[in-house]
């Protein structure tokens, strides 16, 4: 019972305090990363080396350390220009053609037309307002796949200098600084963030990104946990064992993903692919 009470308190506190905590972090955070030469196209992938992924919220004690094989991930988020080429080639994914089952009414709403970007969608800015189904189809059309949550988080844990920057307060504070800023109406071009250890850019600071198994890892699925499946992973028992209790940025990513549904499109949710 004590544990349950503690869990409830942890959950309530975390949820209630998240907003002010973020604002404070933003004020205290360092200046944004230095601008780099903007990548023109999202073409090109970077190699992410094999290693151990330490999820912030392991779904079970056996998954506290996840051995990762080497894989490749897009250096940059998929841009409006890239996505325009995709829908030009694949009419079924054009705005107005996609069934509501696979993308909600706001799908590519900021584009001027089904095959025209217009002033609110810079060709070099990340494409957003795409559903999970659309993002998945795009990656498959390139012979790639949407990164799994583990792949994405593993690649995104890298700072500019280390494969795991999560223990660097300056790194995490900078991520939170972004989370506290409103999304501009017209998103900036990709490629302006500093490359991380693997060479990937804009994994933080530009848009949220879809993952293949969004929302599925939020909850403990360990049947040995006394049969009370109500223990949500991030507000529950395993949150106490969370790898890094300071990593609010990851907390928000996991929470955000778990609220998504496949057809959802959001103005600051884009994607990149892996293979």
């Amino acid at each position: 019972m004590i544990e349950r009470a503690a869990i409830a308190a942890c959950c309530a506190l975390a949820c209630a305090l998240s907003a002010p905590a973020v604002s404070m972090a933003a004020e205290a955070g360092p200046a944004p990363a230095a601008s780099r030469a903007a990548g023109k196209k999202a073409g090109g992938m970077v190699a992410v080396g094999a290693g151990n992924h330490l999820p912030v919220y392991p779904p079970s004690p056996e998954e506290a350390v996840i051995p990762m094989k080497a894989f490749e991930i897009d250096r940059l988020p998929v841009t409006n220009g890239d996505y325009l080429a995709f829908v030009t080639k694949n009419p079924k994914w054009r705005r107005g053609q996609v069934p509501r089952l696979l993308a909600d009414a706001r799908y590519l709403q900021h584009w001027k037309g089904p095959l025209e970007l217009g002033p609110d969608a810079d060709p070099d800015a990340p494409v957003t307002r795409v559903s999970w189904f659309a993002a998945k189809a795009y990656c498959e059309a390139q012979g790639k796949h949407l990164p799994t949550e583990n792949e994405w988080e593993y690649a995104a844990a890298a700072s500019e200098t280390s494969p795991d920057g999560r223990s660097d307060p300056a790194f995490t504070a900078r991520l939170l600084g972004w989370y506290s800023r409103p999304t501009p109406k017209v998103l900036p071009k990709v490629g302006q963030g500093a490359p991380n250890h693997w060479g990937a850019q804009d994994m933080h600071g530009l848009v949220w990104e879809w993952v293949l198994d969004f929302g599925s890892t939020m909850v403990s699925s360990d049947s040995r946990e006394d049969g009370d499946p109500d223990k949500m992973r991030f507000c529950g028992a395993s949150a106490i064992n969370a790898g890094d209790k300071e990593d609010y940025a990851a907390f928000m990513r996991y929470a955000f993903r778990s609220s998504l549904q496949g057809p959802y499109t959001v103005g600051n949710l884009g994607f990149r692919c892996a293979r």
Partner: peptide, 26 residues
């Protein structure tokens, strides 16, 4: 960016589970 606040608000209703300690997800 308020999406994550929404996310947290939406978590509770998604928590519907099966019985018997079987691995389940909402």
């Amino acid at each position: 960016m308020r999406s994550w606040l929404l996310a947290i608000a939406l978590l509770a209703p998604t928590a519907a589970f099966a019985a018997d300690g079987h691995p389940t997800l909402p």
